[in-house]
């Protein structure tokens, strides 16, 4: 009736994804590693957003946290040390349909890949970048990282790290075209989840620094933060997710923060104790590089052939 074809049928979602659809085997991180909490949070976000696993790509560099893609049942790219950014950008360049999560560590992002970090932020391609900051090189066994606290004894600086650490959050807030910077901790699953979810929903590069425990080498670095929540400062308002009353009670220190104010964000990012957590900065109006790299996608073969002939004409005699 009404001219509909016989085989017409209502399009109903034929697939529903559960957590299992994103679980790619047993993670081999150390027991008690903060990476496990991040993995769970990302799997939950994938499920809650019902992301088709085949349309999701997890990109990483090299390091403990860069094993992340292997534990997701999505597409993955476990690339080279420090090069997660260019790979993630390349994936996205002509495939805006893919959802990209980047797992990178403090050595990967802030040391060997620092150049790409600056430019990756500037490209502002739509992806979630998770900086797993455990303040140490774990996979190579206990060397000083750029975020190791001054004085931390490591295998490369047994008498203590010489220099004060680099602050990845305030550094990122200094890069051109930055559009989203947040900070969270791996041991508060609720805040971690909501922060990553806010990052996922931002169009552009969402940079999330996750204070991540390493039970093997830097257990003490985050011990105080973990034990005593008064060392944390929960940012509220602005682009921050709204937490329920019970969750809010976990944070004795709270501060309303206008996440559209870059200068305020930079000021707060400098703060170490209490450590601000939440969305420090968001500007959805910043240009995204894929707006330029996707030009010409879907051009027909006939148009391409015509274009080619015109290009040949320019050299013809």
């Amino acid at each position: 009736m009404f001219g509909l074809k016989d085989d017409w049928e209502l399009e109903i979602p034929e697939r529903y994804f559960t957590l299992e659809d994103y679980e790619g085997g047993t993670a081999r991180w150390c027991p008690g590693c903060g990476d496990l909490a991040v993995l769970t949070a990302v799997q939950r976000i994938c499920r809650d957003e019902q992301l088709p696993p085949e349309k999701t790509v997890c990109v990483s560099g090299i390091g403990c946290s860069s094993r992340f893609p292997h534990y997701m049942k999505t597409y993955g790219f476990h690339g080279l040390h420090g090069r997660a950014f260019p790979v993630a950008c390349g994936v996205k360049s002509r495939r805006p349909d893919l959802k990209v999560f980047v797992a990178t560590g403090d050595g990967d992002c802030c040391s060997i890949g620092a150049g790409h970090w600056v430019h990756g932020i500037r490209y502002n391609m739509d992806m979630v970048v998770m900086l797993f900051d455990n303040a140490i090189y774990g996979l190579t066994k206990n060397q000083t990282s750029p975020t190791s606290p001054q004085g931390l004894s490591t295998n490369t600086h047994p008498r203590g790290a010489w220099l004060p650490p680099l602050n990845p959050t305030s550094a990122t807030l200094g890069f051109a075209n930055v559009s989203f910077v947040a900070q969270t901790v791996d041991w508060n699953p609720l805040h971690l989840y909501h922060t990553l979810k806010a990052a996922y929903h931002h169009k552009g590069t969402s940079f999330v620094r996750i204070m991540q425990r390493c039970p093997t080498y830097t257990e003490k670095v985050f011990a105080e933060l973990q034990k005593d929540p008064s060392h944390l400062l929960l940012l509220t308002g602005g682009d921050n997710p709204e937490l329920d009353a019970a969750s809010l009670r976990m944070f004795p220190n709270q501060q309303a923060h206008d996440s559209r104010d870059l200068h305020a964000a930079r000021r707060i990012a400098e703060q170490q104790d209490p450590l601000p957590i939440g969305v420090l900065f968001r500007d959805p109006s910043r240009p995204c590089y894929e707006d330029f790299t996707t030009v010409g996608l879907g051009m027909s073969a006939a148009d391409k052939l015509r274009g080619l002939e015109r290009e040949f004409d320019k050299f013809s005699v």
């Binding site: 260019p86 390349g90 360049s93 495939r95």
Partner: peptide, 16 residues
Amino acid sequence: EDEIAAMGFAIAASYA
């Protein structure tokens, strides 16, 4: 931004 990134970008586009 550099030669390394150019290569990684191209490889990733091909991967995709």
